[in-house]
Each structure stands twice: as C-alpha cells, then as structure tokens.
Design a protein around this nucleic acid. Structure first.
Lengths: 243, 243
DNA sequence: CAGTGGTCTAGACCACTTT
DNA sequence: AAGTGGTCTAGACCACTGA
C-alpha cells in the first residue's frame, strides 16, 4: 500500500505538519520540495493537491501553501467521519463493541424506485435486509438495505449479520468506495421509538444512500434511521472547482 | 471564466453525456479523446478526474471510463446541494423568495471555543450575528454566526441583513470557498419552536460550520438550526484516495 | 521584479482487464 | 497480446502576490 511517490510524499508532509516542523504555518514552495524530496514538481503538486482537497492545507497562488490552523488545533475533526459514516461497515467505534441484529431478510421484486436507482429491469428481484445496529449493546440505527440478487446471488443471513461490504471485498474482490448520500431529519415514528429506545419527542437522522461498486454499478440502496444522539456527519467542503 | 483547456473539455464531455452522445454508457478512451479534442492526454485526465470526483463518471483501470447511470436517470441529485447548503448565501431556492430577519447584532469578546476555531487571541472581539432566514415568508433556519472584527471591521447591520459573503467578495475581494461542516440532529428547543413555528415534537437539523477565506484564514463560525422539513444535505462520497 | 502556485504538454513506463 | 487507465517526469509558460 502506497509505495507511490505522491503518496509517500503526502504522508511525510502530513507527518511533518503534525510534528510542527514547518515555521509560520507555511510550507516550503513546490520547487524546493521538489528538489528536497528528489521528485518532480508534478508529484509534489499532486501530493499537496490531495492534502488541500482534504482541508489540511490551503494553497494560495502567488503567496504559498499554508497549514489549516484548525487541522493542528482540532485534529479530531479531520478524521473524515463524514466519508465513513454512511459506508455501512465503517462507522467510527473507538473501543466500542459493535453489534447487529437481523430484523428482516427476504427477496422481493424491485419497486419502480429501486429499479431506477439500481438500474434494474421489471422482473428483477432484490434482497431486502433490515438490520438494527448497536454500539455497546445500545441500538442506534435501523438500516434497510436493498441489493440486487443478480449482483450477489450468494448472500445469506449469516453474511448479512456481519459485514456485507467486507464479504464483497474479501470473497468477491469487489470494493464499494463510492456513494451518493442524502441526509435529512424527521420526528421519530412508533417503530423508531421502539427499536431505538427513543421518547416520542426525540427525533431521528435519516441517511439515504446509493452505494456503487468500483466500476460504477449501483450496488445497494440503503435507508438509515439514526438515533439523534449518535447522528453526526462531518465533512470538509470545497466550493472551488465546481460546475 | 473557464477558457482553461481542461475546463472546456470537461464542460463539453458533460454536455455530450447529457445529450446521450456516448454509446453503452462508455466514454472513448483517453488517448482517443486526446486526439479528438487536440489536447494532451494529461488535460483529458484532468477533466475526467474532476467529473469522476463529482460522481458523474467512473474510471476503471484496464476497462475504460463509464457514465454513472444515476447521473442520467436522477440528475437533480447531482446538483451538489450538499456543497451549497451551509454556505450561507447559496442555499437552493428555485423561484422562491428569500428573506432575512436580523435578530441580534453585537460585538462580544471571543469565547475560548471561538478563539480556538477562529485562531484568535485572548483580547479579540467578534461580531455575534443572529439571523432568521425565510423562504416564501416561512422561517426555516436560525443562524448564529461569529466573525472576528479584525477581519471585517466595517460590517454593519445593513450588510448583515443581506449577504455577508457577497459583501466580502464584491467589496473586499475575499472569497469564501472552503468550510468544515458538521451535521447533527436535535429535538427543538422552545426558541426553535417559536421562531421556526415548530410543534414540540418536531426536531431541527443542526449544521455547524467553520468557513475559511481563500488563504486559509478562519473567517466565521456558524451554527444553524434548520426546520426539519427544509433540512436536506446531499453529497457524493468517494472513499478511494483517503488517509 | 522575484517568488509562488496554476496550466499544459509530450512522452515513458506500469498495472490491470479483456480477448 | 492489445487496450485502457495510473503514475511520473522535465520543462515551458502563465497569473497572481507582495516587497
């Protein structure tokens, strides 16, 4: 993993930032970095580009490259919870025990909405999988997922009780790294209150997502209703290069 | 705007995708595009890279470049509401009238939290600005913002009643394009209920953000409490190149 | 005017997928 | 083996910032 030039430069610079090895919140200019790392300026640019994308540094044409002060002061924010939450199997659990209770598992015809999102035909079927997720034995999320059977005809309740994504990656060599997420808020329904142990006045966060395989095949539609105390999505937003 | 090579290639390809000019959801290979557009392959790569970043296409080493089927089917999703929500003055209002009511406007010493986030000293002061935002005369968000006076000593209630970011960009030549956002959920408080016309059982979405100037200076800390019916944050997530 | 990041090129070679 | 995207280089030139 990562014997790539720009990768290792990136790691090294990141480490140096954390070790406070740069003066005045400022990095050396790209040409100096290029000679000191003995790599091309393009590779330096690429490394810095990724760091900038992640909000760790800011590049300012004509002036130089600067460290985001918040990265040093408040580093936990930069752990990309955002990108991980939503990817079903990589929620952040420090030392906490994670559990899954299977609520429902069946094969049903794909609704028209699902046909749209999963790129299916009229006669296609999907797994419908409902799971209750727990941390330290506390329920925090109801997850309803739909997966086309034609993508993974070999799913089973046993697999579904642990990590579908891990199964896919390990057994099938398919990775899920892309998703389209939509986040909203709603009062809790009776079922939410029951399963998540919520009071009637307590709300849920809703995360709806479509997950894709590496080649762009839509793989899963997921609807997650999250206990409000556990609901937190953090992300760095860069409005530059859009449209 | 955008006489850049990779920009115009990007726009053209995007338009061709929408016009369905590519067969079988697949783009021509990079070398062909390079010759047909008469630009270097690097520029093609860059254009495609941005489109991939936005989730419009998928690139698969060894196989080719493919159009995200959801981009064609469900294009409204790809309008990057995500990146815009949170940037205070670019919420999505189709044809809707936008309004602002100034609730509070004062200068106060920066709390220690604010000193942290805005990179301030013990004796620094900030504007504290509370605004109620409306669409079609319906209140939908309570926004509390903190801005260091030393960054914009010339703020005024009149400016604050409209767009601070526009003022900054037009009058000061400073752009705000980057932010760190954190999204959560909470039951509504009495004040939320009063200002946003919520029932006690109805919740709010909370968006907290730190906004940065182009050079990386933290510029504003903002806390937004959003009426749950108006709360929607959508974004494309790419887990590839992380860490 | 010197310094800095941004864009663009042309080409070599590598890694993976498909036939 | 052929085709495709990924990495990397070396260098030219541009655009902006700041002394």
């Amino acid at each position: 993993m990562a014997d790539l030039v720009y990768r290792s430069v990136m790691r090294d610079i990141k480490q140096k930032i954390l070790a406070n090895e740069y003066q005045g919140m400022r990095l050396p200019d790209e040409r100096s970095l290029s000679t000191s790392y003995q790599v091309s300026r393009s590779s330096i640019k690429r490394a810095l580009g990724v760091l900038a994308q992640q909000g760790i540094i800011f590049k300012k044409r004509g002036s130089g490259t600067f460290i985001n002060p918040l990265y040093l002061k408040n580093r936990s924010l930069f752990r990309y919870e955002g990108s991980n939450v939503g990817v079903t199997d990589s929620f952040k659990f420090g030392n906490h025990k994670q559990g899954i209770r299977l609520i429902d598992y069946q094969v049903v015809p794909a609704s028209t909405d699902l046909q749209q999102d999963l790129f299916l035909d009229d006669n296609d079927f999907v797994y419908k999988i409902r799971r209750l997720r727990l941390v330290d034995d506390q329920p925090f999320m109801i997850e309803t997922g739909y997966i086309p059977i034609k993508i993974t005809p070999t799913l089973s309740p046993a697999i579904v009780k642990s990590s579908i994504f891990n199964y896919l990656e390990n057994a099938k060599g398919k990775r899920v790294t892309k998703s389209f997420m939509s986040i909203s808020v709603a009062p809790s329904k009776i079922e939410d209150q029951r399963l998540l142990k919520l009071k009637p006045t307590e709300p849920v966060g809703i995360m709806e997502g479509v997950f894709f395989l590496d080649d762009g095949t839509p793989f899963e539609v997921s609807n997650m209703r999250v206990h409000y105390k556990y609901m937190k999505y953090s992300t760095f937003v860069n409005l530059d290069q859009e449209s």
